[in-house]
Amino acid sequence: MSTSPDLIAELPELARAIKAWGLELGFADVRIADVDLAHLEAGLQAWLDAGCHGEMDYMASHGMKRARPAELVPGTVRAIVARMDYLPHSRADDWRAQERRRHEDPDAAVVSVYARGRDYHKVLRNRLQSLAERIQGAIGPFGYRAFTDSAPVMELPLAEKAGLGWRGKHTLLLSRSAGSTFFIGEILVDIPLPVDPPTGRHCGGCSACIDACPTGAILGPGRLDARRCISYLTIELKGSIPEEFRPLIGNRIYGCDDCQVVCPWNKFAQRAQIADFDERNGLGEGDLVTLFGWEEEEFNRRMEGSPIRRIGHERWLRNLAVGLGNAAVAKRGDEHILAALRARSAHPSELVREHVAWALARHVQ
């Protein structure tokens, strides 16, 4: 946009107003960053060249545009980056201990905490759009585009530059006041707003997240091989889950929170300020046999508005079959589990049949 001298003088006050409006819309923090990410291009290219993105072709399809926001949205000079907490109110004060108990229960179907409520893409995008419209109402038309995990944008580096937190050794963003249980969204704008300083990094010598990763996906501080990550295997991977990883997945049927559960900073995790992220359909307490019994119509109905629906019923059954196979460690030959698996042994999907056969074999070995 054409920035008049009068507007330039008003930019600090506009930045303060934007942050206040963001809080009114349910964001927990709003900050501003420049969009120079050139220093990350070599690392991004090396990560892609090593194939660490697996089947996530969208990570590579836009080339270095991911590190060049001004190429994605011409005219961009700043990113307004917002944080929204998602920890459901149904989680106990010591929610990490609550999650550990779920991991240790062979009957439990563990869904990543972020996915138990409404799809965050819709929630954040709508509120970011409302924030942009509020800005437009104050200053008139300007160039902008709102995103949340929906475009080739390096969101976490922008959030780190803006001072929302720092990249932990697990690559997630960490906040000293909120841990890592939050979503991030941004508005790329053509307004030269004053930027906020970064916070610095505060992981110190801790390696809890690296040590806790069930599949060894965190290769070292800030180095993640997505092909080994349970979130990738249960959400992004479309085909068969490699057998070497199936026993390591345990009872995690959609995503994985292990690196967050062990992180000391998550004792400061904040409850969601809005009801959208309340747990739905009992996903915080579900069991493997019950969820495996959902037919496609029930899955689609219950998962309406949930991020889980995008994997579809076939992959839902695939993931649950792996969990039921792993229950054999503690409950070998359990008749309820065997009956559930046998009921799906002739499923029309070859993908489901393969994982059911593997699970049954685990129970009769």
Rank of each mutant, 00 (worst) to 15 (best):
M1V: 14
A9S: 14
I18E: 00
K19Y: 07
L23Y: 11
L23T: 15
L25M: 09
F27R: 00
D29P: 03
V30D: 00
R31F: 09
I32C: 02
L37N: 00
L37C: 02
A38Q: 12
H39S: 15
W47T: 05
D49W: 07
D49P: 02
A50E: 11
G51S: 08
E55I: 08
K65M: 15
R68I: 08
A70E: 15
D85W: 00
R91G: 03
D94V: 06
R96V: 06
Q98P: 01
E104D: 15
V110Y: 03
S112Q: 10
R118A: 13
D119H: 09
K122Y: 14
L124R: 01
R125A: 12
N126S: 14
A132L: 04
I135F: 02
I139D: 06
R145I: 10
R145K: 15
T148H: 07
T148I: 05
S150A: 10
A151H: 01
V153A: 08
M154K: 08
K169E: 06
L172C: 13
L173P: 01
R176M: 10
S177D: 15
A178Q: 03
E186D: 10
V195L: 11
P197L: 13
P198N: 07
P198S: 08
T199H: 04
P214N: 09
T215C: 12
T215A: 12
G216Y: 04
I218P: 01
P221N: 07
G222Q: 07
R223A: 14
L224S: 01
L224I: 04
D225W: 10
I230C: 03
T234A: 05
I235T: 08
G239S: 06
G239V: 08
G239I: 08
I241G: 03
F245Y: 14
L248Y: 07
L248K: 12
I249V: 12
G250S: 09
G250P: 03
D257V: 07
D258P: 04
Q260I: 07
V261W: 01
P264L: 04
N266E: 01
N266D: 04
A272L: 02
R280N: 07
G284H: 03
E285Q: 15
V289D: 02
L291G: 05
W294P: 00
E296D: 11
E296M: 05
R301Y: 07
R301D: 12
R301W: 11
S306A: 04
G312Q: 03
E314T: 15
W316D: 07
W316F: 14
L317Q: 10
R318A: 02
L320K: 06
A321E: 00
N326H: 10
A328T: 00
A330C: 11
A340K: 03
R344W: 05
S345Y: 08
S345M: 14
S345N: 12
S345W: 06
E354K: 14
A357T: 08
W358H: 10
W358E: 05
A359C: 10
A361I: 08
H363E: 04
V364R: 14
